[in-house]
Design a protein around this nucleic acid. Sequence first.
DNA 1: CGATCTTATGTATACGTATTCATCCTTGCA
DNA 2: TGCAAGGATGAATACGTATACATAAGATCG
Lengths: 360, 360
Amino acid sequence: MVRSDRKRAVTSVDVAAAAGVSQATVARCFTTPEVVAPDTRLKIEAAADRLGYVPNAIARSLKSQRTNIVGAVVPAVGEYWQNVVTYFSRRLTARGRQLLLFSFLDQEEVNETLEAVMQYRLDGLILASATIAEAQLARMRQTGLSLVAFNHPDAAGIVPSVTVDNEAGASELARHLADLGCTRVLYLGGVAAASTDRARFRGAARTLASTGVRCNYMEAGAFTYEAGYRAAERVGSLDSLPDAIMVGSDEVAFGMLDGLRRYGLTAPGDVLVTGFDGLPQAGWAGYDLTTLVQPADRLAEHAVELAAGDTADPSDAQPPSVVVAGTLRRGLTTRKGDTEQGGPGSLPSHNGSTERRAGQ
Amino acid sequence: MVRSDRKRAVTSVDVAAAAGVSQATVARCFTTPEVVAPDTRLKIEAAADRLGYVPNAIARSLKSQRTNIVGAVVPAVGEYWQNVVTYFSRRLTARGRQLLLFSFLDQEEVNETLEAVMQYRLDGLILASATIAEAQLARMRQTGLSLVAFNHPDAAGIVPSVTVDNEAGASELARHLADLGCTRVLYLGGVAAASTDRARFRGAARTLASTGVRCNYMEAGAFTYEAGYRAAERVGSLDSLPDAIMVGSDEVAFGMLDGLRRYGLTAPGDVLVTGFDGLPQAGWAGYDLTTLVQPADRLAEHAVELAAGDTADPSDAQPPSVVVAGTLRRGLTTRKGDTEQGGPGSLPSHNGSTERRAGQ
DNA sequence: CGATCTTATGTATACGTATTCATCCTTGCA
DNA sequence: TGCAAGGATGAATACGTATACATAAGATCG
């Protein structure tokens, strides 16, 4: 048997030969079809089809200096980020772009990874919640790729940035609690060093202070369920329970709710609880959490626009900084009057929005 | 001011000139450093550093015919898939590969997307739960990229495949229920047309039948929380409640648990409930679901190995088909003896495994 | 000490496409 | 009829790198 295994790939030259035209015309036929004569186009398309020709995006990118690929550097864990990645992917696909994804566990991985990323000459790069050395940032901008900081308020001013209005969102939650008559509020942050965490606490403390309410800060140690669950122990052993616990993220809030139950404490009966992010699970009847919903799709759209938009002008003096407002979701966990969760007949959720979802 | 904005990118030729060597030696210095003399290497590295040289992976790929990029086509929604994507990313990064991600909502998008994907000459492609036309599959294999079907048992035999042992897993869950004395079991599938769904039901029904237990099938309509929540209505309006409900996926099971609560029904008091997948949330105290844990990291590792492994031999007569066994997680939802969920002092979870998690 | 082998480097080319420039043909208009 | 303008196509080149081949200089060995 002849070893014809390694059949050379079909190129535009082959198609040109088969169609009786030049390679240049074949190339035009796939990039700017309007400049090639209709009958010629048909001939070429027929030949391409017959030979099974697939344009080579690598070669195209090399020549045109555009890869049509946008990268995203995203934390490897956390429900919130998994959500956001999905939106990135969808938005980019809608624009005919591809998504190169990097998950990182530790910040140190980021810098290594970035070295590898830079070799791919991406059109844009979305940095989600990652701390990059400023020197490296500068180096990256020089290469002409458009950087976007996602959910990393600190980066605004240095790099184009997209983020939800953390401070205003926390403020809105705080006002909601104040309206319900809370006078002693505990803020449970994830990681105090995170800029989002600080912004949220700032918004909460400011608004509460303006109504004469004191707001203490406690750190969970991570933005995870487990951290919230463990933090509940510390809350449970406090001398006196606060009226409300504002938690810095939904996932931590879930852990807090479950953790509190170990001590026989439930929301909203014994203490009010709020979250932040607006994860899909916040709408699940099991939690039905009051939270600030981040418009994840809109945030992703903005990030993609900045990273892959055709208005690429990296020489902008003022890096555009997009801040989008979130919306308050009033759930069971701050509903005064109810005492016990999940009683028979208590109709939760029905959050109205009809979400399309695909099969597994 | 001089418009020196568009500074040409620095190439290996520039580095060669600066270091006083040929371009070929610079290239060798970055691909096979061991063949270049130590002092020469130092000169080159110094020059590259000084000029800020970054190798161009696009050009490299064009010449070497390897992109070092592996693609993954994954459903856009579902907690399970978001999890799996994270593992793909991590495993690939560990191997020095990049991940090109495609999320799809509808199966139709897949075929369009695939056209675009094929242009990028990926080294491998992981098809997660997507139904591809066989003709297209064949065309894709011809191009020399290694395809892997992930969690799509039907594809085994046609394409290298990686999947959890759905049938054995469901069987194990069924035996667990039988051991607890269940005699009337309802199986709530997601989408009856899905091959995973059928395999799981088959495993459950077979094992239950062998112990003389009848197992009815009900379809939720989607692998989503909402579908499970709505299915609970149908369960609640049954003439008589089954002893146990085997749900085809954790996410659907969460919806079922929350939905049942509307009717004052809880697990394990009124009915036992099991899931499938082993999502992180199954371990959360709020649900503490009995389920079959898919070894997602191991599955991802196998998929990556097949898609990006250096043992690329696409001419294999027998496409390797990896089936990995899951492990049973016994949660509160099948714990006989307990009547009410979340009572004070009931210590849930403690699932032992110490998971590392990063900050937000 | 010359012949052979090894090692390090330079030369030249190819990867597959986009694009500039030139060329040819068609058409419109005076 | 002649000439300019426009439209379609071909020829040639460049994108930045990897690699086969050739070559020069040491190293090894009889």
